[in-house]
Design a protein around this nucleic acid. Structure first.
Lengths: 328, 328
DNA sequence: TTGAAAGCGCTAACAG
DNA sequence: CTGTTAGCGCTTTCAA
């Protein structure tokens, strides 16, 4: 099966009886072309089925009209929102989005930055796993925006972060209103930037409310991390358990059920992320929702409009469901 | 913040004291270059941090080393596997994967094919929503591979499909062994190719086993579709409900629980997909698992090796969990 | 084995 | 407002 040869701008120019550059202008800066000739050109282009060659366009203009989004694990539903938001923002701006899976690995992340960087107008790294140095190096070579990570000391790297301070405040207030006087935080990996922010926020909010907060872990932030984490929380006689993320929280829920501990009667459980499934697990999970789709879209917007090298804070929202209740 | 100018092949050539074409050869066809000069060139390229410009490469070679994957909804966990598999297969081959979200819309799908097609070496469309004509047109212009869809009558379009015949057979056998003598299929959208295949397989298997099968619907294949679907199944006095997919099945489960119908004591429920969450919903869902990651990877492989215009069948596997039990 | 040279398709000065 | 003319960075003949 042979594919038909592509229609080029020259074909259109010939067919329309104008110069190639005029066709180019008619397409990219319609204002600078006589309305009649423009309409004619567009009509001819349409008829011939002309589609500009992105590579050629990139060659001469220097812009690829493409962005890359790097996530630690594509299959993790937590990132689905950011991916969708980024894809939508990119598509809305007529841009293409390239997706990269860093497999939770700093080195794969570095490689991808190097491989994809030259092919795109900018990179979004969500939940970057690399060191500050890695990211600074990347920022030196490419336009970069971060999601749920900041790069202190390096100017010009915009980022979008969830409002964990307000969010953890909400969690603590919620638990306090239920009569809880202490909480246990089941931590995820030490390297996790958002994990650190979550714990810091929780600790600050707890202190200001006179709630005792303890951190246990680190645990695997997965279903498999649940048993060890749940057992530790139980051993610590926790009445309220706040988990690094929903995956771990659901794992904890299962373990508690397996051990005959009732949620929320015996113990309350809170997660982070409001991940897909958090509403239909048993019991439905109280969790801090991040607007990940907005975050993804916002990161692309930051790339689209350079100069706005700000840190954008996206609000979070506590979803109260069935896994939290009055302190026993 | 200004980004440093990229190192080009000419820079490397000058620094190494050779012609640009020699550098090009040293990089892409190392065999055709004197070992000593080649090593020298590679060393210089490395030192200068040279990374080939993909657009320029695409311009002259015609190949972009990029594939596109189109899915109906990026946030649907069902597609996460295919995305990951495709990304991995592409990365393993040194290719780049572009992701497109067709928003479940045939027209967006068409647009994306047109927009992305020229920029890539091939397209994978998963669960294509377009008509056969749309797909035939796409196949005429681009290298194409399909996942869970076939294109009868159009040669040269390879596809990867789940083995629904064997899978539905497994479902029916499972229900029969539990004493069920009839089943109700809660259908998804009529346009769904896989929905049609699922029902056809179910019907054939049921007939050959002397099981009565009825189809109700169509229902929204989402949690929201659950109530209407569950109520209809109840009205039909079903003892075994097979749902178009896990989303719908979980929606059905929730509705049944809400109405006080016990699963699996009063009625058995089966889903399709073994989606993320199917194991931690309540009760854990018996469902037909597809190896979506393999399917995604396989589709990319089909694109990588033209000529193998086959239909690849990926096995399915029934995961028996807690939502199915003996007929009441 | 290597270099010179001709483009790939498009955009961006620069004239006219 | 439009045509001419250079390239963008790379691959690929074609000679040497």
């Amino acid at each position: 099966m042979t594919l038909p040869k592509r229609v080029t701008i020259t074909d259109v120019a010939e067919a329309a009886g104008v110069a190639a550059s005029t066709v180019s202008r008619a397409l990219s800066t319609p204002g600078r072309v006589n309305a009649t000739t423009r309409d004619h050109i567009l009509e001819v282009a349409e008829r011939l089925g002309y589609v500009p060659n992105p590579s050629a366009r990139a060659m001469s203009s220097g812009r690829t009209h493409t962005f890359a989004l790097l996530v630690p694990d594509i299959t993790n539903p937590y990132f689905a929102g950011a991916i969708k938001g980024a894809e939508r923002a990119a598509a809305a701006a007529g841009k293409t989005l390239v997706l990269g899976d860093t497999q939770e690995s700093p080195s794969v992340e570095r490689e991808l930055v190097q491989r994809l960087g030259p092919a795109v107008d900018g990179l979004v790294i969500a939940a970057a796993r690399g060191t500050d140095e890695d990211l600074a190096a990347a920022a030196g070579r490419h336009r970069l925006a971060l999601v749920n990570r900041t790069l202190p000391g390096v100017a010009g790297v915009p980022s979008v972060v969830a409002d964990y301070d307000a969010g953890t405040r909400q969690i603590v207030d919620h638990l306090v209103s239920l009569g809880h006087e202490s909480l246990v935080f089941l931590a995820g990996p030490h390297e996790s930037w958002s994990g650190a922010r979550r714990w810091a926020g929780l600790l600050a909010a707890a202190e200001s409310s006179g709630v005792a907060a303890r951190r246990l872990g680190p645990y695997q932030p997965t279903l498999q991390g649940g048993p060890a984490a749940a057992d530790a929380a139980l051993a610590a006689r926790a009445t309220a358990i706040v988990c690094h993320n929903d995956m771990l929280a659901i794992g904890v829920l299962r373990r508690l059920a397996g051990r005959g501990v009732r949620v929320p009667d015996d113990v309350s459980v809170v997660g982070f992320d409001d991940m897909f499934g958090a509403d239909f697990c048993q019991p439905a999970l109280t969790t801090l929702a991040e607007r990940t789709e907005d975050a993804g879209a916002c990161a692309i917007d930051l790339l689209l409009r350079p100069g706005s090298a700000a840190t954008v804070v996206v609000p979070t929202q506590l979803k109260v469901r069935d896994s939290t209740g009055p302190c026993r």
